[in-house]
Design a protein around this nucleic acid. Structure first.
Length: 574
DNA sequence: GCCGTTTTCGGCCCGACTGTTTTCAGTCG
């Protein structure tokens, strides 16, 4: 996938053009970069299939940029970019990662101090050279030094299971104030993006001063970055940033829209507003002529005034949801209430920490009808994988426990290793005694694309396998997906009537949102498994559901929404 | 450089906060 490489280059071109005070072009490059970065398919595929015309059909990509993309795909470089870099030999992509340092300041630093990269920047800042520049001063230098520290610390974005509890705690503290009418987390966290950079909060109140004061003096606040009458920005103790905005009650709907984002979604909405003679900002929807507020203060009201169906936050990425809303075709997304079971949990028989009985109790408390115990298979020595005899014992125990349940059933499963040759880690006589077999890759991650694809497809052709576990093997912030022809895997899964897992563990979320969208469009069914290694982790289901929502999944796409009675249609051995 | 039921020119989302200013540019979201 060269999508992200291209997006990065276009963004850097935008920076360089901006430095040269060139108007509008930077915006065009940025827009193209953002739409390329959010493509769900490989840009190379688009080009191979439909050539320049295909590239031209990407929003924000016209004739000229299409040619540049073609050049990059063919030669691996873009001449115009090289020339620009020669002219402005600064590592802008790196430098502008520093908070409060944008292209304009970077240019001045280069002109006056020959600063080209982070290293030069650190040296100059430490030597006190930056403070002496006109227009910079002590504070700017301090900001840069701190930004450098943050850059080193916080290159990685936070996982949802880290960010969400912090956000909820902040919300709770703010909601305690009588001045607060409502406090909600917004931004990418509200859209449940797989990782978030900061925690954005929107408070509705007529007394913003008090709210800002409380927010900036919360226990969890390490440093206050900015503090104005309606807006504040802080660094939390874990080095994440949190931004607060306070709006008035009548501004709530527009405020939520604006702060939930995404930016791309908002830009698209504002353009529709303009077409209709309105102006949309975080304060509301207004008539361009009279400046008067258009009645209605909820998000729904605003969508309605723009002739759009309500769009749930998880879909607001400008990836087709606006077009769908225009046609009134926003799907009814799956919700956590639809979930009737979990297909992937580990007990202390392998590397989990709780007993099967405790896991079952938790499942029943969650209102589930079934829970599939899926411990590791014998090759997974490091995770205490079950020997054949132990697995048989476990199956017996599950059958015994089931006798005591009403309206609830434990399913005897296993997360069976897919071995190097694509075979499964237990012999047929064992596999056929299991209710559900999840096949997963846990070794030889660095195989070639061809090998890995063949290995997984062989497993998918095995009649005992039901679900392909964490299909791409990525670990967010840690490990890239395996080299894999995912289209081929989807195709073979479909042909063999196999299901794909959406592993809900927060550092996996595998399949990803865009993968899921592709999979369900093909007609594949998805099984959400928490991969819980303790009963508490069974709550990770919410991250799975959120990711499914981001992948446009409806109830009927997700196996976990089916009742115990309906399951045999999808799992023959039940 | 892109885009188009005001389409081949002339627009391009909108506003808050900060630092270094003496009216605003730069950055962020």
């Amino acid at each position: 996938m060269k999508n992200l490489e291209l997006a990065k280059i276009f963004n850097e071109i935008a920076d360089i053009l901006e430095i040269q005070d060139i108007q509008w072009k930077p915006q065009a490059y940025r827009k193209a970069a953002s739409s390329i970065a959010s493509l769900s398919i490989d840009i190379e595929k688009i080009y191979k299939k439909s050539g320049l015309k295909g590239l031209d059909s990407i929003p924000g990509v016209g004739k000229h940029l299409a040619l540049k993309i073609e050049e990059y795909l063919k030669t691996g470089k873009i001449k115009a970019y090289k020339q620009l870099k020669k002219k402005v030999p600064i590592d802008l992509a790196e430098l502008t990662h520093i908070e409060f340092l944008g292209p304009k300041k970077a240019k001045r630093l280069y002109k006056e101090l020959k600063i080209k990269n982070i290293k030069d920047l650190e040296k100059a800042a430490k030597a006190g050279k930056i403070a002496k520049l006109s227009g910079f001063g002590e504070k700017s230098q301090q900001d840069i030094l701190e930004g450098l520290g943050m850059y080193k610390l916080g290159k990685k974005r936070a996982l949802l299971n880290i960010a969400l509890p912090i956000a909820k705690e902040i919300i709770q503290s703010l909601n305690k104030l009588k001045e607060v009418k409502s406090a909600e987390y917004v931004g990418s966290l509200r859209r449940m993006k797989e990782t978030v950079r900061d925690i954005d909060i929107l408070v509705i109140s007529n007394k913003p001063k008090k709210v800002i004061q409380t927010f900036t003096s919360l226990d969890n606040v390490k440093k206050v970055l900015a503090k104005g009458p309606t807006k504040a920005s802080v660094v939390l103790k874990n080095n994440m940033h949190s931004d607060l905005r306070v709006l008035k009650p009548e501004e709530k709907g527009a405020g939520l829209l604006y702060f939930i984002g995404s930016k791309e979604h908002n830009i698209a909405l504002r353009k529709i507003a303009i077409e209709k003679g309105y102006k949309l900002s975080e304060y509301g929807l207004f008539s361009r002529n009279t400046g008067k507020r258009i009645p209605g203060t909820s998000e729904k009201d605003i969508y309605k005034a723009l002739s759009l169906k309500y769009i749930p936050p998880e879909l607001r990425e400008n990836q087709g949801e606006i077009e769908a809303a225009k046609k009134g075709k926003i799907p009814t997304l799956i919700s956590i209430k639809d979930i009737k079971g979990d297909f992937h949990v580990h007990s202390k028989w392998s590397d989990g920490s709780d007993s099967i009985k405790d896991l079952a109790t938790t499942a029943k408390k969650l209102g589930y009808q079934y829970l599939c115990i899926s411990d590791h298979s014998k090759s997974e020595k490091i995770a205490n994988g079950l020997s054949e005899s132990n697995l048989l014992k476990q199956i017996k125990l599950i059958k015994k426990l089931n006798k005591n349940f009403r309206g609830f059933k434990l399913l005897a499963g296993s997360e069976v290793d897919i071995l190097a040759d694509g075979s499964l880690d237990y012999p047929e006589k064992i596999l056929k005694q299991l209710d559900i077999v999840i096949g997963s890759i846990h070794s030889r991650f660095k195989s070639s694309k061809q090998e890995m694809t063949k290995r997984i497809c062989t497993a998918l052709e095995n009649k005992h396998l039901n679900i392909l576990g964490h299909p791409t093997g990525r670990l967010i912030n840690q490990r890239k997906p395996y080299n894999l022809d995912l289209d081929q895997v989807f195709k073979v899964a479909l042909e063999n009537k196999k299901h794909l897992e959406l592993n809900a563990f927060p550092n996996r979320l595998d399949l990803s949102d865009t993968n899921l969208k592709e999979a369900i469009e093909l007609g594949l069914k998805i099984s959400i498994g928490t991969d819980a290694h303790s009963k508490d982790q069974m709550n990770y289901m919410k991250f799975g559901v959120a990711t499914a929502r981001r992948g446009w999944c409806q109830k009927n796409h997700i196996l976990n929404t089916f009742t115990l009675k309906q399951l045999p249609k999808y799992f023959k051995k039940l």
